[in-house]
Amino acid sequence: MKREWFALGIVALLVIVFPASLFGYQAWRTNSSDARVIDVIASSPENGGWSPDEIRVNVGEHVRLRIAAPDVVHGFEIPALDVRVDEILPGHVQEVEFVATRAGRFPFACTRWCSVNHWRMRGVIWVSDPAQPALPAPTFAPPLYQQLRIDIDAMHPAQNIPPRKPSAARGAQLNLRVDADFRTQSPDAVFAKLRADAAYDAYDDQQLWDAIAFAYFQNVGAENIANGARRYARDCAACHGERGDGQGPAGKDLPGLTTMHPDMPRGPANFTDASAMLGASDALLQGKILRGGMGTGMPEWGSLYTDADLWSVVAFLRTFTFDDPPAP
């Protein structure tokens, strides 16, 4: 009988203590940490999106997020707090720690293209300051397109189309100075102004366009273009295409394609379309990105991008109509 009890004891140990210790270990991992551990599940929006999609922390609190991806590859970013995880592989858990230094309501988002609804995968982190329960009032300046009263939903085709694609490299050799505010003026408007000016009569149309391309890139700088390129690849190319032609794989069946006004161009914007791009000022393009496409499937980026990020993406978009951008 003694050996029966021994055998039974071993079995009980293996069947009860072993599983219990597994769950115990997981609980210990959570509770033994000096940081506040928050488990976050990242699923594609059709599988539930972020869970939780609202995270509440305090200013100065040491927070550790444990992010799991049960379905496909996801990324995580709280742009305002400079917290990011570039890759969460399915079945893996990625941890990221941070201490929020200011109170506020900050959006977070998935940074990897996880499904056709990827751009809906967003959440909010509330950082409160126990000393100051009320959130600080947001400082808000209306975006430039509103100040300029640009109707960003209307078409603004260019009146003048360059004979060839303008080249900054050719423009650089002209030694031609172009003073223009590209944020408020479209390249087309800048061209019209130069063409009307007798001082530029010595230059043909193509040369003026080349000079505009050069001036534009000089103005925005290589760093901005490189930052824009990174963001474009991460956030835009899936729909607008790696070549900017609007033919990206994720843009093929957007909801807006069927419900949009019949007179509007269908599908993601084509940044290689000279008429549309040269007729648009930077303010207009920035407004589009900032506000989004209102039901077309184009998400708003105003809550995730800083102003500088928005302008840098606009600068990169110009490389689809102007050749030879400066290398960083």
């Binding site: 690849a233 295409g241 790696e242 990206g248 794989p249």
Partner: peptide, 24 residues
């Protein structure tokens, strides 16, 4: 070219491994 989410392509015997994402 990945059309919905991140995918890879590994070719047996040639040890080629690609990873693509919509837009990349």
């Amino acid at each position: 070219e990945a059309t919905d989410t991140v995918h890879g392509l590994y070719v047996d015997g040639y040890d080629v491994n690609l990873v693509a994402e919509p837009g990349k």
